[in-house]
């Protein structure tokens, strides 16, 4: 038997459709399982509480509330990561890199420190969203100036990173000069938590997220074409500039909503899209819904761990997303990156 022929055969690294289908079934089966487990974890102890008692009912209500918050926030973060990575054709892109989260965070910090409790609940999402849009516009304009009209990916990412760090420096400054009470709420908020916000804000956020996700799913086949570059997308009959701007806008709505709901939760927007792409390929028609589901489930699970590992102390969920997600991501990166990005 010719050894060289065998080697050549082994070099075939295309995608296997049957394996992909199995992975998809496993994933979709795991989602309700993980969500169910998350409902059974909490500071009140593991297991499903007895809903015949008042206390049990309250616990279930609390846990479903956090589950809902986690699903919305996680889906929004992951989907905005997918969009930014697709638009910038860069695996490093995510809401934090483009300064969108930083801008939203700055707006939220100002609004927390300045406002009364009432103002915070009603105004926070709005302020976060407006400041995210302002930041993105600034980043876009700076990048466009630098590269003569059409912002290049590199100038977008560079100016995004810089604007982002300016925002976080201002946040630090505000925090260091804040009174003790404001300090506490800002810090807690910055660490990120899925403590349910008001019903009205939840409802509004849910609508924003669902609509934006729908919008992204609509443009998802176009995101595939855009991965060949702006010029090629134009040749294929797309209005590339319109596509990029609307994608950036949708991604920003998602990121700002997530930040206003749950504070600065890192990592989800970066790693969930990568893991999903590695598992199911980069086709955005599949990737957008799968990353949303995956991001939501991942965050819900991290939150369940965060509130139950060293209960009654609650660890900020952002810590868990990084500690639990990081190694997992590195394993995926090492083993399956070829299936996501060309190495």
């Amino acid at each position: 038997m010719d050894n060289r022929a065998v080697c050549a055969d082994n070099r075939f690294t295309g995608r296997s459709r049957s394996k992909e289908r199995v992975r998809l079934l496993l994933f979709l089966g795991a989602v309700p399982l993980v969500l169910g487990i998350s409902l059974m974890l909490g500071p009140a102890g593991a297991g499903f509480p007895d809903i015949t008692t008042e206390a049990g009912k309250a616990i279930v209500m609390l846990r479903t509330g956090r589950l809902f918050m986690g699903l919305i926030t996680g889906a929004a973060l992951a989907a905005s990561g997918v969009v930014f990575q697709a638009l910038l054709r860069n695996p490093l892109a995510e809401p934090y890199v483009l300064g969108v989260s930083g801008g939203a965070g700055l707006g939220a910090t100002i609004s927390i420190l300045a406002g009364s409790g009432l103002f915070v609940t009603l105004g926070l999402p709005l302020v976060a969203f407006v400041s995210a849009i302002i930041t993105l516009t600034a980043v876009y304009l700076i990048a466009s100036q630098g590269s003569g009209g059409q912002p290049s990916v590199y100038s977008l990412i560079l100016s995004g990173v810089i604007v982002s760090s300016i925002c976080s420096s201002i946040i630090m400054f505000l925090v260091s000069t804040a009174g003790i009470e404001g300090l506490h709420s800002v810090i807690w908020w910055m660490l990120g938590s899925l403590q349910p916000v008001s019903g009205g804000q939840q409802f509004l956020s849910a609508i924003l997220v669902v609509v934006s996700l729908g919008g992204i799913w609509l443009i998802s086949p176009r995101l595939n074409a855009l991965s060949l570059g702006r010029e090629m997308a134009h040749y294929q009959g797309l209005n590339a500039d319109l596509l990029i701007v609307s994608g950036l806008l949708l991604g920003t709505i998602l990121a700002a909503t997530a930040v206003s709901l749950s504070g600065m939760i890192g990592f989800v927007g970066l790693i969930v899209p990568h893991v999903m792409r590695a598992m199911f390929g980069p086709d955005h028609r599949k990737l957008v819904p799968l990353a949303s589901i995956g991001g939501g489930t991942f965050l819900v699970f991290c939150d369940a761990i965060a509130r139950s590992v060293i209960a009654p102390i609650e660890i900020p969920v952002g810590v868990i997303t990084a500690i639990a997600g990081g190694p997992f991501f590195l394993i995926i990166l090492q083993r399956r990156m070829k299936q996501a990005w060309i190495s």
Partner: peptide, 21 residues
């Protein structure tokens, strides 16, 4: 042409139909 993402050949060719959708 190049894409930073690991698209398969058929996924790449499919992009040719995007303008008509």
């Amino acid at each position: 042409i190049d894409s930073p993402m690991a698209f398969t050949v058929s996924e790449i060719v499919m992009n040719g139909r995007i303008g008509s959708t």
